[in-house]
């Protein structure tokens, strides 16, 4: 994926991140795409594969503030959003912002939190604001949530329903690093300390500018939109799929495709951008009738069945 990136700025960021996060290149690119699409990222993976490192490194390099929530089943919504505390000196309630008031928020093991807390978090993600005691607080910009969940442990968890999962632009998994990368990691020991010392590479303003640029300047043709809608419609019609894609999903696909097009140094979207993003955007949003089938396979078969412009 990295070899397709032609945008200089982005390529520099990716390369820099790669130097301190061995063997996570596609995860890096995908999380950047999610970030620049103003979306959020869900990482489904086993513990100890560098989810936190990824989040910290991102925040450092992009000079963004970083907050972390470790979810448990007794975590309260206010533990995330923050709460008003009585200030005796001032004689009034004072709002203490929670970890969500950061640019990059790592929500670890989101499926361990109770549905109540999950809803609070997801609402904050959607609205980009938090309401505590009748007062509304705007969240900082950019705002990017990296949530993780463990696919194996099920006891004492509250799996996110598909409707909630829809709010995450992408679901990825980092996967085990390659042997060479793993050797490197073990040789150098944990680099957590060093991650905090990483030089920032771009300013916060610049990130916002790029987000705006992608939104405004990248042209997505009607033909590509029709292609996306063809796909969306097929997922709704397909008899292997119980729940097809929402309009939000279509929107997420087009946003991610635009960002990817920008990364690839183009100011217009081509169907291939869409095609390459779909495997990361779609699977967690659909429910199959037969759970034993592979979502990736079903999606691929739909992609193979629809014709791509310009050759219709």
């Amino acid at each position: 994926m990295i070899e397709k990136i032609k945008n200089h700025k982005i390529l520099q960021i990716v390369k820099y991140l790669q130097s301190c996060l061995q063997g996570k290149e596609s995860a890096i690119v995908l999380s950047l795409i999610a970030l620049f699409s103003k979306g959020h990222l869900l990482i489904e993976d086993f513990p100890g594969l560098g989810k936190t490192s990824l989040a910290i490194a991102l925040s450092r390099v992009l000079s963004l503030s970083f907050g972390r929530v470790q979810c448990t089943n007794d975590l309260l919504p206010t533990d995330i959003t923050g709460l008003s505390i009585y200030n005796r000196q001032k004689g009034e309630f004072e709002f203490k912002p929670g970890p969500i008031f950061n640019n990059i928020v790592l929500v670890d093991e989101i499926n361990r939190a109770t549905p109540k807390t999950q809803s609070a978090l997801l609402e904050a993600m959607a609205e980009e604001q938090v309401t505590v005691d009748g007062k509304t607080y705007k969240l900082p910009k950019p705002f990017f949530v990296i949530a993780t969940q463990n696919p194996i442990e099920i006891y004492g968890t509250f799996p996110l329903p598909e409707s909630q999962l829809d709010r995450f632009t992408m679901k990825i998994s980092i996967g085990y690093p390659k042997r060479e990368a793993e050797t490197e990691i073990i040789k150098k020991g944990s680099l957590r300390e060093e991650l905090y010392k990483l030089q920032s590479f771009v300013e916060k303003e610049e990130i916002l500018k790029i987000q705006e640029e992608i939104r405004e300047k990248i042209y997505i043709s009607e033909k590509v939109i029709q292609y996306i809608l063809d796909f969306v419609e097929e997922t709704r019609k397909d008899n292997k799929i119980l729940l097809g894609l929402s309009t939000r999903a279509g929107l997420a696909i087009s946003c991610a495709a635009k960002t990817y097009a920008y990364f690839r140094g183009r100011d217009y979207v081509i169907p291939e951008d869409v095609k390459e993003m779909i495997p990361y955007i779609v699977p967690h949003r659909i429910i199959l009738k037969d759970e034993s089938l592979s979502k990736q396979e079903v999606i691929k078969s739909i992609l193979d069945s629809i014709s791509v412009p310009p050759l219709k």
């Binding site: 081509i270 291939e272 095609k275 992609l303 629809i306 014709s307 791509v308 310009p310 050759l311």
Partner: peptide, 10 residues
């Protein structure tokens, strides 16, 4: 031979 489900660059 280009397939119908292929993009040009692909």
């Amino acid at each position: 031979k280009i397939e119908k489900n292929q993009g040009l660059e692909e």
